[in-house]
Design a protein around this nucleic acid. Sequence first.
DNA 1: TATTGTTATACTCTATAACTATA
DNA 2: TATAGTTATAGAGTATAACAATA
Lengths: 157, 157
Amino acid sequence: MQAPSLAKVTRVDASAEAVAADLGVLMKHMFRTTNREIFSAVEEAGITFTQVKCLGILDELPSPIAIGALSETLGLSVPAISRAVDGLVQRGEVKRTEDPRDRRSKLLTLTAKGRRTFERFAALRFAGLKRFVADMSDEEREALAAGLRPLAGRLSP
Amino acid sequence: MQAPSLAKVTRVDASAEAVAADLGVLMKHMFRTTNREIFSAVEEAGITFTQVKCLGILDELPSPIAIGALSETLGLSVPAISRAVDGLVQRGEVKRTEDPRDRRSKLLTLTAKGRRTFERFAALRFAGLKRFVADMSDEEREALAAGLRPLAGRLSP
DNA sequence: TATTGTTATACTCTATAACTATA
DNA sequence: TATAGTTATAGAGTATAACAATA
């Protein structure tokens, strides 16, 4: 893309209020256009949203995590996580082993199957976002690309 | 804000893939920083997420809506909506009256109390977005403002 | 006879409480 | 005695099925 013509670089209200309002509009539309499909895919896979979130946490963490820590991360009770994880172990998505340094604690890691499962859902979510982006005009998409880059560059590892 | 210096207007990948990826990063962070508070506020108010969504639909529609239509809009079963609405009626948030042209159908409208309730949650969500935006650097926020404006301008009424 | 909404029933997920095993 | 996790039990929300009222 070329540097934009000056005609496009009009002043924009960059107050927190204005930006938050526009962000709210964007979020609402993004949800409506991308969410329903994932919802039905998760349900069809016979898995729980909580279980998908468990997979997501395990996917992004570099080292194993225990039930209690996972519970705290997701803001759900320990028994709820224990049950969710138990289901994942039975499905072969997660490996649960005793921590050798404290045998009360169980360390959780993704199996290859679990990683594939999570990546399938992540791909579905990404496809929804892509469709949303592809529906924009070229001008909208280019402006958004330039506006997101500094922030996304900092936030993503 | 002045027109940006040329140094800032570097080329950015505006492909659907790149923009969708950055949008995904933004969304994830937005959730993590803004959602937990609303979650606890809803629970503390003794109301259901489904009921809040019902209030939101009624708030934005110009005319009354029936149970069946609300059910379809939210993607939940008619009995689930019937129960959710019943709770809202008992709390005085929603008015439910027979449609005079088809007395099987019940028309739903927000009461003043219902509108206030929804606006309280909307304000909470907005405050979360504002905090998220206020945490950015000036450069990030200004770039985002310019990038969101065309899209948000089109999407919002 | 078909349709709109409500009530009945069963199921899933979650939280609190009770429990087991390690520390 | 305290802590990590599991199992027991109860509660909330949803879906399917059965029903009542109206078309």
